[in-house]
Design a protein around this nucleic acid. Structure first.
Lengths: 245, 245
DNA sequence: TGTACATCAGTGAACGCGCGTTCACTGATGTAC
DNA sequence: TGTACATCAGTGAACGCGCGTTCACTGATGTAC
């Protein structure tokens, strides 16, 4: 056995067909939905037999878990990239960019979005110990951006936003401590509120609930993203100016 | 053939086993999710054979469509009942009651909620001409309540809420005319915004996305429902007073 | 009131399908001496 | 450099399962005269 230097030829082949399996699976999910994912169909598309897949994944659930993890990472990476596309001190535009990226990722990968945040697959139960840290990473992008805004003194929830009740504050504080967040409790509050509001619009959109009466949601989404920021006390004039130019 | 007086014995038996089929199907959906719905399993639970079900539904899709319709009706009825539980001129409490009922129905019937607003079943495409009017009925409860509030002069979105852009207003107007709503365009705007915000919280909750870090969502939901109303310009003091008493 | 007939509910067998997973196996790829 | 061996990728057959749907059928329920 080689002590872990660079991967052998065989090893790299292994990981590359493993990647290919996941690629094909993702494509299948994108077309048919996650519930219709089939090992045999994947094998067929790869011109292999189904049992060969067991060299790469313990079973179907194992593959699904891997898909969920990569979907989460792709999602988190997209959010981070959006944030970093704006200058580091321009918090308003960072937040706005994150909000837009949230939606555009979901539109580009609707089935992955649903795989992550939506309906679980019939016989499948995601192992929380693997799934949860990944979910946290996405959430953290939002939390970090809000925290940075807060630190810069550009967040003023108190002026426009209701104070959480003591009971709610206690919950948020518990969360804050358990996960060791440096952000203030109110930042966590805004993060969870913001998340739920983006999710509400995005999930209804990708499930075509708006279509019959509104058609395109572009305008509504921008409107709501800005509105959300305003309610957080963020000055959005820089965003609107940039948008026009 | 009898001219349509009261239903014959046979007819009433027919509708009653039809109802039983749907009942069993609903139970199955509640336990396993809509994607796992199986005609054979339904028949088994009813101590029948599967082909007998074809006396009552053309095929599986036909059953699913019927389930969707009844789910929508149950949902809309619950919202209406909540509204009517408050006195007719107390618009604030009516809106609040609707918001609470929205969530509690979803919690009581999570799989039905997802059947209606969420992931479609793999091979199934809901016939829009049947599904859409039902969806409209639920939406109309919210719209009507907001319109009544507006007519009473208790809605003041302009003061706290961003004006929709001209493009968005045009979309909303198109919708308003196409469906013949008497409510103002801004009421439709508030309805769709309110819906998406309730949906965001509720759908994340029933998919257990909040659980790892927040546990119970009760406080957050109440907080957000009130916040939403405040942003619409509704005076919520009557609601909070009532809550305490 | 009784008889002949039509309608309907439900059965049981069968069709054809696809699925996840196991197993013993063949060849190829890599490793050790 | 060559040979013996171990490891791994992938095959093909099979198991056992469940599914939606069709078909010809049996009995029961209702209807007309």
């Amino acid at each position: 056995m080689k002590h872990n230097s660079e991967p052998t030829r065989r090893e790299s082949r292994h990981t590359s067909t493993r990647d290919e399996i996941m690629e094909v699976a993702r494509k299948q999910i994108a077309e048919q939905g996650a519930a219709a994912l089939s090992l045999r169909e994947i094998a067929r598309q790869m011109r292999m037999t189904a049992p060969a897949l067991y060299r790469y994944f313990k079973d179907r659930d194992d593959l699904v878990t891997a898909l969920i993890v990569t979907a989460f990472r792709s999602f988190a990476d997209t959010l981070k990239a959006a944030r970093d596309s704006q200058s580091a001190d321009d918090h308003a535009n960072q937040l706005f960019a994150i909000a837009l990226a949230y939606r555009s990722w979901a539109r580009a990968h609707p089935q992955d979005y649903m795989l992550i945040f939506g309906t679980p697959i019939p016989g499948y139960k995601a192992p929380a110990e693997i799934t949860q840290p990944e979910a946290k990473c996405s959430m953290d992008v939002l939390i970090d951006a809000l925290e940075a805004t807060d630190t810069a003194g550009e967040l003023d929830p108190a002026s426009t936003y209701a104070k959480p009740s003591p009971a709610l504050l206690a919950q948020l504080n518990h969360w804050r401590k358990e996960f060791g967040y440096s952000a203030s409790t109110i930042v966590l509050y805004l993060a969870v509120v913001g998340w739920s509001r983006l999710h509400g619009l995005v999930s209804l959109e990708i499930e075509n609930q708006f279509e019959p009466f509104l058609g395109d949601i572009d305008e509504l989404y921008r409107n709501q993203a800005l509105e959300l920021m305003k309610q957080f006390g963020v000055d959005t004039t820089a965003v609107t100016r940039k948008k026009k130019s």
